[in-house]
Design a protein around this nucleic acid. Structure first.
Length: 298
DNA sequence: ACGCCTACCTGCTTGC
DNA sequence: TGCAAGCAGGTAGGCG
């Protein structure tokens, strides 16, 4: 499922494929995928436009168009983007397609129809002037974890302002942009922190380990072109990070540090993988609610 | 602020 | 073997 490294990989691979291409027609069989504006205006606003750049913000793809508009694509769980010759038959999971003037077609394929697209006018520094009902598009997102301004000091201040537990916090896009279920579990394993630890309880070295683990695992995953688990694939094919994961979907398999079996619990309804030896929950942070979670199956 | 719930979806896995 | 229920999770919205 695409998180920051997967969306970054899609953006990097899509950029050379569609830069300079001109949209000539927009097709959809699932108008609900179009978040803004109404489907007719979405199509009309795109036809004749040249794509000048493809970037990533959080888990969103942003295609900059000539003339100051942005085509925004959220692939969410199962969305895939590909550029193919227009006469290639569309399978039943292709729900939005952008025909290009050179005979190719950009396609959004999504088995679960969770993906969303939108067309916005680009304002200064990339913020939309007209974000429709969604409000300022990226206003609710936290910092980009790989940007230089995401320093340990910044992370520390944000952690100490929160009272929740680490796992749900890392998944909160308002706390930090781009981390999802895979890399939340991987970062916590690398930092040797239990997913049920509370953010504000971390000691300075633990905060530093987590900061470094988040950046490290996301950078490595980008180098490996993302984790191809379930439906994720990039425009140039599958990534390799799935072969280098330490805990995600490794329930029962030996921990790469200590050899003990990886455990799976449910935290906030999300499957959570960790090593109960390497990532211990201090006695002082145990409560009846942590006991209940830890007593769950797997 | 936070945790918990539901909804959106469908393919795959599990259980009977 | 078949069929239904359960599960997966990114994100938004609602509630307490």
């Amino acid at each position: 499922m695409p998180e920051l490294p997967e969306v970054e990989t899609i953006a990097r691979e899509l950029r050379p494929l569609v830069a300079d291409a001109v949209v000539t027609e927009v097709w959809t069989d699932w108008p609900r995928a179009i978040r803004h504006p109404a489907p007719a205006a979405f199509g009309a606003g795109l036809v004749g436009r040249r794509i000048v750049d493809v970037r990533r913000r959080a888990k969103w793809l942003v295609l900059t168009l000539e003339g100051g508009a942005m085509l925004v694509i959220q692939v969410k769980m199962t969305g895939q983007l590909a550029v193919v010759a227009s006469d290639t038959p569309r399978d039943r999971h292709v729900h939005v397609a952008w025909r290009l003037a050179d005979g190719r077609e950009l396609r959004l394929r999504d088995t679960r129809k969770f993906a969303r697209v939108g067309l916005y006018r680009a304002g200064e520094d990339g913020l939309p002037l007209d974000a429709g009902e969604t409000g300022a598009l990226f206003a609710g997102h936290g910092p980009e974890p790989l940007e230089p301004d995401f320093t340990l000091g910044v992370f520390r201040r944000r952690l100490r302002a929160r009272r929740g537990r680490l796992k749900p916090l890392l998944l909160d896009q308002a706390f930090l942009a781009g981390v999802g279920n895979i890399y939340a579990d991987e970062a916590l394993w690398r930092a040797r922190l239990h997913p049920l630890r509370t953010a504000a309880s971390l000691r300075p070295p633990e905060e530093a380990r987590l900061h470094s683990a988040i950046r490290g695992v996301l950078s490595e995953a980008i180098e490996r072109r993302g984790s191809s688990v379930d439906d994720y694939t990039a425009p140039e094919g599958d990534g390799e990070m799935q072969e280098h994961l330490d805990v995600y979907q490794r329930t029962g398999l030996p921990c790469h540090r200590c050899g003990r079996p990886i455990r799976r619990i449910l935290v906030g309804g999300r499957g959570t993988h960790f090593c109960s030896w390497c990532q211990r929950l201090p006695q002082r942070e145990r409560t009846s609610s942590t006991d209940t979670i830890l007593a769950g199956i797997h």
